[in-house]
Amino acid sequence: MKRLLLCFLALLLVFLSGCASEHQAAPEPATQDKLSVVVSFYAMEELAREIGGDAITIHTVIPSGEEPHDFQPKASDLSALSQADVFIINGCDLEEWAPKAIATAHNPKLRVVTASDGADIHYIEMKQVLPGQKEEKAADPHVWLSLKNAKVEARNMRDAFVAADPAHAAYYNERYARFTGKADSLLAEYTRKFAAAQRHTFVTGHAAFSYMASDFNLTQLSLSNVFAAGEPSIHHLKNLADECRRDGLTTVFMEAGESPRIPNTLAREIGARVEVIETLEEGDGTETYLETMQKNLEKLYQSMI
């Protein structure tokens, strides 16, 4: 009788183990199977990590604190590109050095992903931000600072990973579904919060947050334009201070790495505090993309209640 009972229990364990395995996450690839991914800068790294997880290795071209526009890749970056499976750039003319780097790498298997393809792009009249410019428009490159657009950028990365590594398509699809679910939850949470807030305007040092503002029907004021070109004039500073007082703003936001001198000047003028908000152009990897975005949104919300 004991023997029969033990056999029954053993069969039951095998059955339950098989059922549980049906609901487990897709297995992570072995180390030797990892996809080689090169990204242009930190925001692309974090989004790629959200989708690729442990299935990819990442080489980031632009170090934290470097300007993406004028950056020149090093020999080690070109070497990484020559061996990579996927190269991810944001686009919107942010990485002007990328076409030459791709040509120099001579890598016929390289899949190039312009992450912002298909996103809702904001265009700026250049003569409004840079006096003397021709009547032309330029794209605001800060696409990744919209949760809605980040889902588009993540989808483009997912599609490239699946195409380059179809054996692990289930893994990439699962991580993409998890990412978009969390992004949608954040969108829903802060849509409710901002709708109930006392104010709907915020002020920043650099006009990098128009995409974030659009997600939640907020208004961004700023000391410098979207390209952070030049210092604000006395006239602009005075008008901005008047707008901040009119809207009752109590916080001036500045990005990490930005000089605090002018944000502090505005803050003193309107009796506000200065607080750092992240553009994800640089970082140390201690927080995920979604964790950083949640912190940004909570800081904005707290400044409006």
Rank of each mutant, 00 (worst) to 15 (best):
G118W: 12
A25H: 13
K137D: 07
A101T: 03
A84H: 05
D70E: 15
R111F: 03
P29M: 10
A119Q: 05
P131H: 13
I121W: 04
S40D: 03
A115V: 00
I89P: 01
K134M: 14
K151L: 04
A101Y: 01
A30C: 11
N90Y: 00
S79A: 14
T104W: 04
I58R: 01
Q133D: 13
S116V: 02
C92E: 05
D33W: 11
D93K: 14
P73Q: 06
G53H: 05
I124V: 15
A105T: 10
E67I: 07
Q133M: 14
A75H: 11
S82G: 15
I58H: 00
D120L: 12
E50N: 13
C92F: 03
L81E: 03
A75T: 15
G91Q: 05
Y42D: 00
A26R: 09
K137Q: 15
K100I: 10
F87M: 08
E135Y: 14
E136R: 15
K137V: 12
G65V: 09
G91H: 00
A105C: 13
N90P: 07
H106D: 15
L35A: 06
E67H: 11
A80R: 06
K74T: 15
L94V: 02
L145R: 00
A84I: 08
A101H: 04
M126F: 08
M44A: 05
T60W: 00
T114P: 01
K148Q: 13
E45R: 02
S36Q: 14
I58E: 01
L78W: 08
I62H: 00
W97I: 06
F71D: 01
P141N: 11
Q128G: 09
N107M: 09
L47S: 03
I102E: 03
W97H: 10
S40N: 08
S64V: 07
Q32L: 10
D33C: 09
L35Q: 08
V112Y: 04
L94C: 01
A98K: 07
V112P: 01
A101P: 08
G91K: 01
I121Y: 01
C92S: 14
L47T: 00
E46D: 07
K148V: 05
A26I: 13
S40F: 00
G91R: 02
A139W: 05
V86T: 05
A30K: 12
E45I: 03
I56G: 01
S64R: 02
Q32W: 05
T31G: 07
Q72D: 13
T60G: 03
A115P: 01
K100P: 05
T57W: 04
L110A: 14
P27H: 12
K134D: 15
C92L: 11
H106E: 14
V61K: 04
S79F: 11
D70R: 09
H69Y: 13
V37C: 08
W97N: 04
D93C: 08
A26V: 11
E135P: 02
L110G: 12
T57H: 07
Y123M: 15
F71Q: 08
H59N: 13
A80F: 06
N149D: 12
P131N: 13
E153N: 08
I56N: 06
S76R: 14
G52M: 07
E28Y: 11
V37H: 02
P73A: 04
N90E: 07
Q72F: 04
D33S: 10
P131M: 10
S64F: 07
A139M: 07
R49S: 12
D120G: 04
V61S: 02
L145C: 05
Q32T: 11
H122Y: 09
